[in-house]
Lab assay of single mutants.
Amino acid sequence: SADYSSLTVVQLKDLLTKRNLSVGGLKNELVQRLIKDDEESKGE
Rank of each mutant, 00 (worst) to 15 (best):
K18S: 09
T8C: 07
L12C: 02
N28V: 10
V10F: 05
L26E: 15
Y4Q: 02
D38L: 06
T17H: 14
L15C: 06
L21G: 02
G43K: 14
L34G: 01
V10Y: 04
E40R: 14
R33L: 04
A2C: 15
D38K: 03
L15S: 03
G43T: 13
L15A: 06
L7R: 01
V10W: 05
Q32G: 08
L16T: 02
T17D: 08
L21R: 04
V9W: 02
A2W: 12
L34P: 01
K27V: 07
E44I: 14
S6W: 07
R19N: 03
G24H: 15
G24Q: 15
K18L: 07
L21P: 01
S5A: 14
E29W: 00
V9Y: 04
V9A: 05
S5P: 09
K27T: 06
I35P: 01
V31I: 15
D3L: 07
L12P: 00
L16Y: 00
E40A: 12
D3R: 08
D37L: 05
D14G: 07
S6G: 12
I35N: 06
L15Q: 06
V10I: 12
K42L: 12
V23D: 09
S22D: 12
S41F: 10
L7T: 02
T8W: 00
L12F: 00
T8I: 02
S5C: 15
G43D: 12
Q32F: 02
L15E: 10
I35H: 07
R33Q: 03
K13C: 10
D38R: 03
L16Q: 01
K27H: 09
S22G: 09
D14H: 08
K36I: 09
L12I: 06
E39Y: 11
L15M: 09
D37E: 05
T17E: 12
L15N: 03
A2N: 14
L21H: 03
Q11T: 06
V31Q: 05
D38P: 01
D37Q: 06
K42M: 12
G43R: 14
N20P: 00
N20W: 03
L30W: 05
V31W: 00
T17V: 11
A2S: 12
I35Y: 06
S22A: 11
L34V: 02
R19Q: 03
R19E: 03
G25S: 02
L7S: 03
S5Y: 11
K42S: 10
K36G: 07
E39G: 08
S41C: 10
S41P: 09
V10C: 15
T8S: 11
E29P: 00
D14A: 08
G24V: 15
L16M: 04
E44V: 13
T17P: 01
V31E: 06
S5Q: 14
K18R: 08
N28E: 15
T8D: 10
D14Y: 07
Y4K: 02
S41D: 09
L7P: 01
D38T: 04
K27L: 08
D37R: 04
S1A: 13
L7V: 02
E40S: 11
D37K: 04
L30P: 01
R19F: 00
R33W: 00
Y4G: 02
